[in-house]
Write a protein that binds this DNA or RNA. Structure first.
Lengths: 155, 155
DNA sequence: TATTGTTATACTCTATAACTATA
DNA sequence: TATAGTTATAGAGTATAACAATA
């Protein structure tokens, strides 16, 4: 009888003190589940991330999206094209700087984004059950602060 | 003067209570920095993840890697082929079950993995500086527990 | 001259499907 | 019949580079 396929053992000696490998592994597992949950919408994770940022920063530019997600501007164009084609995002020229686009979610976009978040986060049950409520809240808070620190640190 | 490209504003109303979007955003930002740091090694993130699991679970099979990373077995074959070709991983048939491969890191593989971790995690400075030591340790612990809960929850 | 966005193209990673061998 | 691994192929997502419009 083999070791009864349980959860993998993480080597604290090799991973000690580092966020990167943990986020990679957690993201890989979460992604494979979320990809299936998002399939009915026909939109990528990148699209959901972009919609999330647009919802939080109305009239933002595509370069802002690119910087915040660590993507190239051309990739953002591809994503936004699809969102606009499906009437989930409205794109117009900025009045202040006519090089820029001003992005905002349409009402349909808001509804779709929320449905996608609901579908994606339904896969989170095991994590929520493994942590007690106080720990879970702190986990969310720490993820936010780590993200913001990283985003603020661009050169 | 525009809003002086600071960190993006995350909308707590839309993201409230969910790990997924936060991990996606954090991972996107971390990835784009780590990709550059890992470029000199000529190996992918998947390869580093695989090496990390092999280091922690000597003589594991490729199916174990696939399950733990949420990848398909054929993708694991591709990754392991490259690691074997570069003498970073030793692959032999399992004695107990001759369908399986038994994977382990070579000494060169151990050194390379540690160098890759060092290069990758050098990008983590901003996160470490944003959290005080106790918070940072708890962050690592919560990431581990979230991962383990998710990995244990496969059907 | 620098920045925003678009287009066209190519690459990296992973998945799908069909196959072999072991159990 | 079911599982582990390989091979060949296709696909999704993103990057690179050259360009147009605006600052």
């Amino acid at each position: 009888m083999r070791p009864a396929a349980g959860s993998p053992r993480l080597d604290r000696g090799l991973l000690s003190g580092h966020v990167g490998p943990r986020v990679r592994l957690l993201r890989n597992l979460l992604m494979s589940r979320v990809t299936a949950a998002l399939a009915p919408f026909g939109l990528s994770h990148g699209a959901l991330s972009a919609m999330t940022l647009i919802a939080a920063n109305a009239h933002c530019s595509q370069m802002q999206i690119a910087r915040d997600l660590g993507m190239e501007k051309s990739a953002v164009t591809t994503i936004v094209d699809e969102l606009v084609r499906r009437r989930l995002v409205a794109r117009s020229r900025s009045a202040e700087d006519r090089r820029r686009n001003a992005l905002s979610l349409t009402p349909k976009g808001e509804r779709t984004m929320q449905a996608m978040h609901a579908a994606a986060t339904a896969e989170e049950g095991p994590m929520e059950r493994a942590l007690d409520p106080g720990e879970f809240d702190q986990f969310l808070s720490l993820l936010d602060r780590a993200y913001e620190a990283l985003a603020a640190a661009r050169l």
